[in-house]
Amino acid sequence: MDKTTNHKAWFLVLPVLALVAFSAVIPLMTVVNYSVQDTFGNNQFFWAGLEWFREMLESERMWNALGRQLVFSATILAIEVPLGIFVALNMPKRGIWASVCLVLMSLPLLIPWNVVGTIWQIFGRVDIGLLGYTLDKLGIDYNYTQDAVDAWITVIVMDVWHWTSLVALLAYAGLQSIPDAYYQAAKIDQASRWKVFRYIELPKMAGVLMIAVLLRFMDSFMIYTEPFVVTGGGPGNATTFLSIDLVKMALGQFDLGPAAAFSIMYFLVILLISWVFYTVMTNLDKKGG
């Protein structure tokens, strides 16, 4: 649609600006402020320059957390996106069953994140949880509080359980927008199932899939509550992701300076990756019309 140039439109944006300035800019400035100062208590602050940033960049702890974070995000994207598409392709297209599937699939999305953690914490316990108990009876040694690999598997399965539906619902919406005529044409051409998927369904889903990937990346990169409830970042530091580490540092040990420097770098990493996604996405949008 053609847009008219009208600078007065700024007035319509003002309420949002005021609100976001209050709830984002002021706190962010506080963080920046802390990141360049040192304190000896009593609210006395000293200029520390980029000292904290240097310290954080040299800290093994942050690099380890970042590494775990990247592995985690990559793993859940690699599972959730294909699985979500697969589920979407198998969803009923209309009728009562479509509604039933929509409602049931949305259910995990609306459970408070700490309850998601609680559900899996209970579900995986060897003594009272269905999953843990079953695995134990099958003779599989499974203990997510002691074994790092088991903890990782639990956290990943939990995330797949929690968020695959979002990818599936988005992909489903993309599929719904494909006119019947496309399928009929494909049938006349005797296109194989794979070709229908590759040349009709996938291009039509590309836009929403980009959004799904962007959202899942951002949210998995910020994940805190669910693994914190299930594993508390353990065993050891095995599932200490960036946010868990940051909260430990900022609210647990009250190391304001390093935590603030950490925050800023953390935010910049997300921003950078998201900006790349966003640019690719808007370019796709333009090409697709």
Binding site: V20, A24, I26, V31, M218, M222, Y224, I244, F267, I270
Partner: peptide, 19 residues
């Protein structure tokens, strides 16, 4: 505006508390 959707709540927890 969208970048605010990407801001990790963990980053904002402490400044929000103080603000």
């Amino acid at each position: 505006l969208l970048t605010n959707r990407m801001a990790p709540p963990a980053v904002f927890a402490l400044p929000f508390f103080q603000l």
